[in-house]
């Protein structure tokens, strides 16, 4: 007899069940139940934000090179479990070729963003030639805790494509997975849990956006929110509630299959530019000779 997998949540590096005890049934096209998914509550979200906040200092403080190594490790583990993801995608209604393509792209995306970890700073930072005797430079820094309401139409690719540019730059995140295609999200969490990614850097919830989006947008300890769906009412509500703490709010309603939707500008959406000034002593400069 086949052992069925229990899909739980991923919070602070652990796999708890929803504290609410609520579930929703995931059915395939034939209306057969394929899994019981956690219907995350506001409190699960709150716990996830606490875990994400706790992880910011450690993750953002890591060497950029080290973050790159970890992201590459994610690609490696993902590659090793390719078959499992393909199987889950098939279970959720994908064709074989589209399932294989989606997994392939997800792996490639990990490799792609892994490489950005120690490069985007050089591209988007600057040394600014101010007119006074000061050394002045600007560097990108992580915004902090970022919430994501991930793509509804893909199970793996949209999730991965949103998470990666966020964590490349040292942010941590809380992600609500696709409600109708949630299986890969929790399996991806298992990948993350075995990839040297510190606990709390990525937290994954399953459940209902209608129920959770206002809590995502109004949480005062969340620095940014990214919405990857097309519900205009939710977009508006999120943007409105974001104003409570001047949350950075973005809509990434993108076709993640397209190559153009992997780019460093997504990394920069959740980066802050910090500018530092320091005086330059110029004693003796008049004597400099070339």
């Amino acid at each position: 007899m086949e052992i069925l997998k229990t899909y739980k949540l991923f919070i602070g590096g652990a796999f708890p069940r929803t504290e609410s005890g609520r579930y929703y049934k995931l059915e395939n096209k034939q209306k057969q139940v394929i899994a019981n998914m956690c219907l995350s509550s506001r409190k699960d979200f709150r716990n996830a934000v606490v875990a994400a906040r706790k992880a910011v200092e450690g993750w953002s403080g890591r060497a950029a090179f080290n973050r790159g190594q970890i992201l590459y490790r994610i690609a490696e583990i993902l590659e090793g479990r390719k078959a499992q993801f393909v199987a889950e995608l098939l279970l959720q209604g994908s064709t074989k070729s589209s399932a294989e393509k989606e997994v392939r792209l997800a792996i490639d995306r990990c490799v792609y963003y892994s490489g950005w970890c120690d490069k985007y700073q050089q591209l988007f930072g600057s040394v600014n030639p101010v007119a006074t005797s000061h050394f002045n430079f600007s560097v990108p820094e992580p915004t902090g805790v970022v919430c994501v309401i991930a793509d509804e139409n893909t199970s793996l690719l949209g999730l991965v494509s949103a998470i990666l540019p966020i964590i490349v730059g040292g942010n941590t995140c809380v992600v609500l997975a696709s409600e109708s295609k949630p299986l890969c999200s929790i399996t991806f969490a298992e990948v993350l849990a075995t990839s040297d990614l510190a606990a709390g850097v990525v937290n994954i919830l399953t459940g209902n956006s209608k129920e959770l989006h206002t809590h995502f947008a109004s949480h005062m300890d969340v620095n940014a929110i990214i919405y990857c769906r097309e519900n205009a009412a939710e977009i508006k509500a999120i943007a409105e509630l974001s104003s409570m703490n001047v949350k950075r709010s973005f809509v990434w309603n993108k076709d993640w299959l397209k190559a153009e939707n992997e780019n460093p500008y997504l990394i920069m959406d959740v980066q802050e530019i910090k500018t530092t000034w320091h005086p330059i002593e110029n004693i003796g400069v008049s004597g400099a000779k070339y």
């Binding site: 006074t132 000061h134 005086p279 002593e281 004693i283």
Partner: peptide, 8 residues
């Protein structure tokens, strides 16, 4: 002493 500060 910070020279630039003194000059300012």
């Amino acid at each position: 002493i910070d020279q630039v500060g003194v000059e300012e």
